[in-house]
């Protein structure tokens, strides 16, 4: 009996899908006893479908295409049910957020793409500078290991980890001119992001350095290597492998945080999207902006999860 229940039956599953979809696409009943019947019938469609769907998913003998296709079918049914029951103004939604005409106006896409390029530049500059800063701080902290110096490094790390990037951006942008330092918005953004990211990366690299056993340093020093050589040749190559996943996660966060530089008028993706939004009185540029971030971030996240899987043991 149990065996019977978990046996996958593709043909009934397909029939059930067609019947269910047919029902959900038919015009809904709108009042009185009709609604009660409609709800019951919709629930019944899903219960019956799942009753056939679950065995297909757990049966190890079922072909992969069948499993994937039936999952897709479930998604189609759920979507059909959503549109049948939701009281949405689909036309207005499509016009405001997914408006191809708005995006094909002259210059719109070009401005979005230049925003992407600027965001990538902010990202790359901050990335390189904060990596150098964080690595330098962590290495100095480990090698010099002077109480006063450690205090200053720790204070830097604590302070800049406790400040929201957007606040630091606004403060530096509005305060710097009074100190006589005139930086472009772009430079201000890079400096602020670098300071914050550098604080986090100091901690990332420090944990990596400390993860290497003291004996590795002893052993390197006993050959006659200097402290700096031991750091460069023995400790860091091992630390970097350990912190790579953490580091790459920070990297993804940094790319996302470039959006916050829009508050100091850097013409990156979000700023351009908001400008276009008010100009066209249409939110489609925001959706396109979100897609542009995804274009950059999706490969990055894939790459990082692959790194995490190959994290070195030991």
């Amino acid at each position: 009996m149990r065996q019977e229940l978990i046996k996958s039956r593709p043909i009934p599953l397909i029939l059930m899908f067609l019947v269910g979809l047919g029902y959900l696409l038919a015009a809904p009943a709108t009042s009185g006893i009709g609604i009660a019947f409609d709800i019951t019938a919709t629930v019944a469609v899903f219960v019956a479908f799942l009753f056939l769907f679950v065995p297909v998913q757990i049966d190890k003998g079922a072909p992969l295409w069948l499993q994937n296709l039936s999952a897709l079918a479930l998604l189609v049914l759920a979507t059909a049910a959503f549109f049948r029951w939701a009281d949405g103004d689909w036309g207005r939604l499509g016009y405001l957020f997914f408006n191809v005409e708005v995006m094909s106006r002259p210059g719109a896409m070009a401005r979005m793409l230049s925003g992407l390029w600027i965001a990538v530049q902010v990202f790359l500059f901050s990335l390189v500078l904060s990596t150098l800063l964080g690595m330098f701080m962590a290495v100095v902290r480990s090698i010099v290991n002077d109480a006063l110096l450690n205090f200053f490094i720790d204070a830097y790390v604590d302070v800049f980890r406790a400040v929201p990037p957007i606040v630091l951006l606004l403060v530096t942008y509005s305060a710097l001119p009074y100190s006589g330092i005139v930086l472009s918005p772009f430079a201000t953004g890079v400096v602020a992001l670098t300071l914050i990211e550098g604080a986090y990366l100091t901690e990332v690299f420090r944990s990596g350095i400390e993860a290497i056993h003291r004996n590795q340093v002893l052993s390197a020093r006993s050959i006659g290597l200097t402290a700096w050589q031991a750091m460069r040749l023995v400790v860091l190559p091992q630390s970097v492998r350990i912190v790579l996943p953490d580091y790459s996660n920070r990297l993804i966060g940094l790319m996302k945080r470039t959006a916050e530089t829009s508050v100091i008028a850097i013409a990156e993706i979000l700023k351009v999207a908001q400008d276009l939004q008010s100009q066209f009185v249409n939110a489609t540029p925001l959706v396109v902006g979100a897609l542009l971030y995804m274009v950059v971030l999706f490969p990055m996240t894939r790459f990082v999860s692959r790194l995490e899987k190959s994290r070195p043991r030991q």
Binding site: L218, S222, Q314
Partner: peptide
């Protein structure tokens, strides 16, 4: 002056 440790302490990388 060479030194050999109990735990070998070779460089794994």
């Amino acid at each position: 002056i060479g030194m050999v440790f109990q735990e070998y302490n070779l460089f794994p990388h």
